[in-house]
């Protein structure tokens, strides 16, 4: 019973980790974008663009590198459209984002038509079958305490492919970038108060373009995970609304890349925990533990985070100060 539970928990955590990858990478991308003061609701569209371009190239070339590059370029093109419209043309960010989602989904589904049902080619599959951190535990399996703990950690967190660890590395990198680098400081300043940033000599327009493009490219990588690694084939609307969960998650983790790793894991776990709980008859009777109800939790929790940020007498940081406010130097 005891070990049975541990094994199940480890497997559950491992699934949650796998499910959370596109959420995490997308959240990192949207975090970069929003930190520059741009609410880009085109995440779903950019994920789809990245997924289709990357998968198409993977199928054609059997090259992981080219596939990643194609995903970056595809979603980057979508982000560029958004940047031109919202930064230079000062179009409404919400409407532009929605348009980008419709456009990106359309382009992706059209492109994907040619590869429906195809699987990733052998070299790509082999690459993502690698488990670089998987440890050989045969030596300590029977050591009391240490053995089972190591086994649990290994089963839950160390038997994943490169994409998973790449995502975590990206989160760490981004956290370092935002906190410790000059460019990160400038990015935060642009999103908080572009007029102050401008007066300090920061190139506001260039910074916004860079952040939107980089953020969009990350969304593309988030999308590519779905056909290339997770589902391993192409179907219509393959990202399945994860772009919208990302928008929620960014708020939930308060624009923080480190918290994003935990937030994504939590949302990933919530996406599957209901099915697990069905194994426990004493819980499955209650509707509160049904997967269908649990599916609402991420959004409810995000609403709560949104409301709490504004509630109370002393208001805390409520996200980038100039989020979705257009900036025009000579407007007065």
């Amino acid at each position: 019973m005891e070990t049975g539970f541990a094994v199940m928990a480890a497997l559950f955590l491992a699934s949650a980790v796998r499910i959370s990858v596109p959420l995490l990478v997308g959240t990192l991308g949207e975090t970069v974008t929003e930190r520059a003061g741009h609410l880009n609701l085109g995440v779903e569209g950019m994920m789809m663009l990245g997924a289709s371009a990357g998968f198409l190239v993977a199928v054609r070339t059997d090259s992981v590198l080219l596939a990643l590059l194609a995903a970056i370029l595809g979603s980057g093109a979508g982000a560029l459209l958004y940047a031109v419209l919202t930064v230079t043309f000062r179009a409404n960010q919400v409407v532009t984002g929605l348009a980008l989602t419709i456009f990106g989904t359309g382009v992706a589904n059209t492109l994907g038509k040619t590869v429906v049902g195809e699987n990733p080619p052998p070299a790509v599959q082999a690459f993502f079958a690698l488990k670089p951190l998987h440890a050989d535990l045969s030596g300590i399996r029977d050591v009391p305490v240490l053995g089972p703990v190591a086994g649990f950690v290994d089963a839950a967190f160390l038997q994943h492919n490169v994409y998973v660890y790449g995502a975590v590395a990206l989160a760490l990198l981004l956290a370092w970038f935002l906190r410790r680098t000059r460019a990160g400081l400038h990015l935060r300043a642009i999103g908080e108060n572009p007029a102050a940033a401008d007066a300090s000599g920061i190139r506001v327009i260039a910074g916004k373009y860079a952040a939107i493009l980089a953020g969009g490219m990350m969304c593309g990588l988030a999308g590519l995970y779905m056909p290339l690694v997770h589902i391993q084939t192409w179907t219509d609307n393959i990202t399945g609304g994860r772009g919208w969960i990302v928008v929620a998650l960014v708020i939930f983790v308060r624009w923080d890349p480190l918290k994003a790793t935990l937030g994504a894991l939590l949302f990933g776990a919530l996406a599957i925990v209901g099915f697990l709980l069905q194994a426990y008859p004493q819980l499955s009777g209650s509707i509160l533990f049904s997967q269908y109800v649990i599916d609402m939790y991420p959004y409810l929790m995000t609403l709560l985070a949104l409301v709490l940020a504004n509630a109370g007498r002393k208001k805390g940081w409520q996200g980038p100060g100039a989020l979705s406010v257009p900036y025009f130097r000579e407007e007065r």
């Binding site: 569209g45 043309f89 532009t96 348009a99 980008l100 456009f103 989904t105 359309g106 382009v107």
Partner: peptide, 20 residues
């Protein structure tokens, strides 16, 4: 049929830049 989304998206983006 996903082409309709492509066309919709393009029309909207063109319209959005028009206002500028």
């Amino acid at each position: 049929p996903s082409l309709s989304d492509v066309i919709k998206g393009l029309i909207l983006m063109a319209a959005l830049s028009t206002e500028f």
